[in-house]
Design a binder for these strands. Structure first.
Length: 804
RNA sequence: GGGGUCGUGGCGGAACUGGCAGACGCACCAGACUUAGAAUCUGGCGGGAGACCGUAGGGGUUCAAGUCCCCUCGACCCCACCA
């Protein structure tokens, strides 16, 4: 049988498109099933073989689910705002939307040649005004519910380029573009009160089916820690607060450390005797704020704050106060109690600055530098040098000391979270404009909802401003407007939203993508209910997922979505690495372009190979040799066509294997075991090949099972057999009783070592099995002269004879 | 410093709630068909001559450990002075 894969693949892609085979309709009798893959950022370099891996995996699931009778939604769109498109546009003096348009075209064409069963009817880009209208509208809801506010935040600033830099662009404290030193600069930014949702975001995880590692990622990012906030009096009046998770060590305080970038030090300034020294240290910290402080001066830098002494509330001891950049101004209270005997960083700091240490937990020699924080926990260590609390265990002391301080009214039990409010402003052109207007008279005013979308201006020239405002600030036609409240002259916000904004709710839009009255109707969202299956990269399981969940929870709280969690299962896939086992990159010259592979080997081969290459959740290196093996497999399937005979029904001797294979693939496609699904198909094909001929139905079954992975060739051969298209057919059902052989071969061990195998009937009586086992020559030989202690028979599995 | 993932042939990887380690594929070797090659087919393929030894290394639990427990080593990723 001859076969032109190019023509065939095009033929079926055309068929699916013309027959609307994969377009989901909201409603109907079939149960809904929503499969989502992260929509890509359409970069200029085109689709990556990594995209192909996850899209194929979810495509296989989608195709099987459709055949199983589900109403499957498998949509695709574009996350197209962001810096790369903006950079490209500045350089080439074109509008980023034009660059994005081109890239989307390329991506879409590539996806179509791979035969993914996306519902193209619901396609959109986050950069479409029809879409970002609703992103802006939702921002207004945040604002109206007091969830958005402006605050001063320090940003990475390059004095040379006069631009705000992301943490990535400012890596190592050096501007990526010009190489000059990055400084910190205070800037007013829009913030979303995500911190308020910390506890809800933790609790909400119970209503999801995320993989454990994904849940852990979320939990770690939220970073809850429970402790005590204590008021500390300053000698001569005044006070400040500290936060600690180890209140039991409070008698060991020998100094306090406050953050150089916090508010407290500014308040204390008038009373400080060594102002110059302190100021110098503050400035130094500001400079290196984003550098890797750890490497330079691990936890040791700082200076004494002269003129300020603080009082330990439990024993009245007066101790010095230091400034140290290991304390962060924006976490906890920006001040800590230092107990060098029981905290690594405090210890190092104390050693550097010659500060006294007091041991307050027994069982540790503090002069040894090698101790670990929390090492004493749960080991029965007792408190010492702690007044009335001496002799208590750590656990008891934690409770008792907290109780006492709370009773005295100088302490509170509090939870702290690493997760902060979301900095929502970007000083960039290519993002959703924030729909706020500043009026000198009325202050910040939200735009009227009916005036949305606020579209980006249609210009092709824009450079960042001197002061680091967004390029939008230069476009005066756009900036100058009128106040929605008083009608007087006013200016638009020129900051835009972060890339994370549009991707925080796109999965809702897919449920009702063409709605021009609402972002999605409640009816549509209730119909699809939740994303059943969300696949993406491990790198997005912390931030993107958290932002999306926060966004949804907010919408839920104001009654706009039906569930507090709109994503049920989240799974992640491994990367496709270059053949040298390193991340693919142009500079390393190890990039594989999917187009080349499709042209030379066909889409089906690429699909099968990417599913076969390894554990889906693990990274896997590219191997063109292995790819060729998959091509051979497909050729074998094609050659089998010539072996089809004209007998009716299935071949009896294939029955058991066929049922096993159906079971294996049906399960593997929902447990992400795509590689073993392929190997099961290979085994089935090998079995067919070993026979002189197979029946039409045998062959049809094989093609049906292969269809999710290699749909073009499967459809083609299936059509030649005279069946209706597979995309309109049903998934086969296996009979459990036929997946187990009636006669099996099991192992016989003597003292745990394999000594032979025996053939038995399924579920054979234990005594009979024993008898057969003892009859094996090698077994006899190995138990000769020994006493039989015990014989273990595990049904249908193994016999183990214990003999001494 | 914290967290995560993981370590199985020459390679990618299989092995369900502990039960014949190395499925399936690649590479390689030998043979068949060919003037020759490609393609295809047949056989072999962890180590060792062997008893046996083998899942990073060392202990442990068990009739039985790649799988469970403890320790050590190593790789990769994420967050990182989080009090």
């Amino acid at each position: 049988m001859s076969y032109n894969f190019k023509k065939t693949e095009e033929k079926w892609q055309k068929y699916w498109s013309e027959h609307h085979s994969f377009e989901a309709i909201n409603g109907g009798d079939k149960p809904p099933y929503y499969i989502l893959v992260e929509f890509p950022y359409p970069s200029g370099s085109g689709l990556h073989v990594g995209h192909v891996r996850s899209y194929t995996a979810q495509d296989a699931l989608a195709r099987m689910k459709r055949m199983q009778g589900f109403n499957v939604l498998y949509p695709m769109g574009w996350d197209a705002f962001g810096a790369p498109a903006e950079q490209y546009a500045i350089k080439n003096h074109i509008h980023p939307k034009d660059a994005v348009k081109e890239n989307i075209k390329t991506f879409k064409k590539q996806m179509q040649t791979l035969g993914f069963s996306f519902d193209w009817n619901r396609e959109f880009s986050t950069t479409d005004p029809e879409y970002y209208k609703w992103t802006q509208w939702q921002f207004l809801q945040f604002y109206k519910h007091n969830m958005a506010y402006k605050d001063s935040v320090s940003v990475n600033w390059c004095p040379n380029c006069k631009t705000v830099l992301s943490n990535e662009d400012a890596a190592g404290g050096v501007c990526e573009r010009c190489g000059c030193e990055v400084v910190q600069k205070e800037k007013e930014q829009w913030m979303l009160r995500m911190g308020d949702y910390a506890e809800d975001l933790l609790k909400g995880l119970d209503d999801t089916n995320f993989a454990d590692k994904v849940k852990l990622g979320q939990i770690n990012w939220i970073g809850k820690s429970s402790g005590v906030e204590v008021d500390i009096n300053i000698v001569g009046g005044g006070k400040f607060s500290i936060f600690t998770t180890c209140i039991e060590t409070i008698y060991g305080i020998t100094f306090f450390v406050i953050a150089p970038d916090g508010k407290l030090i500014k308040e204390l300034m008038p009373r400080i005797e060594n102002k110059e020294e302190v100021m110098a240290y503050i400035n130094e910290t500001a400079k290196k704020s984003n550098m890797d402080r750890t490497e330079l001066n691990k936890g040791k830098s700082g200076c004494l704050v002269k003129g300020i002494k603080a009082i330990n509330p439990v024993n009245g001891k007066e101790v010095p106060v230091f400034l140290g950049d290991f304390v962060l101004g924006n976490y906890g209270t920006g001040a800590v109690m230092a107990v060098p005997s029981h905290d690594q960083r405090d210890f190092e700091y104390a050693k550097e600055h010659n500060i006294e240490m007091i041991q307050v937990i027994s069982g540790r020699d503090v002069s040894e530098a090698a101790f670990e924080k929390h090492d004493y926990l749960g080991k029965g260590c007792k408190l010492i040098n702690s007044g009335e609390f001496d002799g208590l265990t750590v656990e008891e002391a934690k409770k008792k000391i907290t109780e006492k301080l709370v009773k005295e009214g100088i302490a509170r039990e509090v939870n702290n979270y690493k997760m902060r409010d979301w900095i929502f402003s970007r000083q960039r052109f290519w993002g959703e404009p924030i729909p706020m207007i500043y009026c000198k008279k009325c202050g910040w005013q939200p735009m009227k909802e009916e005036d949305l979308p606020l579209v980006l201006p249609d210009v092709a020239e824009y450079e960042p401003t001197e002061s680091g405002e967004s390029p939008l600030a230069n476009i005066s036609d756009w900036v100058n407007t009128t106040c929605p409240k008083c009608g007087g002259p006013a200016k638009r916000e020129t900051d835009t939203m972060p890339n994370w904004a549009g991707s925080s709710w796109y999965f809702l839009r897919f449920m009702d993508a063409r709605n021009d009255k609402e972002f999605a109707s409640m009816e549509a969202m209730k119909y699809w209910n939740k994303v059943d299956w969300y696949n993406g990269g491990m790198e997005h399981t912390a931030r993107h997922l958290l932002y999306a969940r926060f966004w949804v929870q907010f919408l839920y709280n104001i009654g706009l979505v039906p569930n507090k969690e709109m994503i049920w299962t989240r799974v992640s896939h491994g990367m496709v690495l270059g053949s040298n086992n390193e991340k693919m990159s142009k500079s390393k010259g190890n990039v594989i372009n999917p187009d080349d592979i499709v042209n030379e080997y066909g889409a089906d081969t690429l699909r099968v190979y990417e599913m076969f290459m390894g554990d889906y959740e693990q990274d896997a290196p590219w191997s063109t040799d292995s790819l060729k093996g998959c091509k051979r497999f497909i050729d074998k399937v094609i050659r089998l066509y010539d072996k089809v005979n004209d007998k009716e029904g299935y071949s009896k001797d294939l029955e058991s294997l066929q049922h096993k294979t159906i079971k294996k693939i049906t399960n593997d496609l929902v447990t992400m075991a795509y590689n073993t699904a392929v190997s099961a198909l290979m085994i089935l094909v090998n079995a067919y090949e070993d026979k002189d001929s197979v029946t039409k139905e045998d062959y049809h079954l094989l093609l049906t099972l292969l269809d999710p992975l290699a749909p073009h060739i499967s459809e083609e051969l299936n059509e030649k057999l005279g069946y209706k298209p597979l995309c309109e057919s049903s998934w086969p059902v296996y009979d459990e009783s036929k997946t187990v052989d009636n006669e099996l071969e099991i192992a016989v061990q003597v003292n745990g070592k394999l000594r032979g195998t025996i053939k038995i009937r399924k579920d054979e009586d234990d005594e009979v099995v024993k008898k057969i086992a003892f009859d094996v020559e090698n077994v006899k030989h190995n138990i000769e002269g020994k006493e039989i202690k015990k014989v273990i028979v595990v049904k249908n599995k193994i016999v183990n004879i214990v003999a001494i």
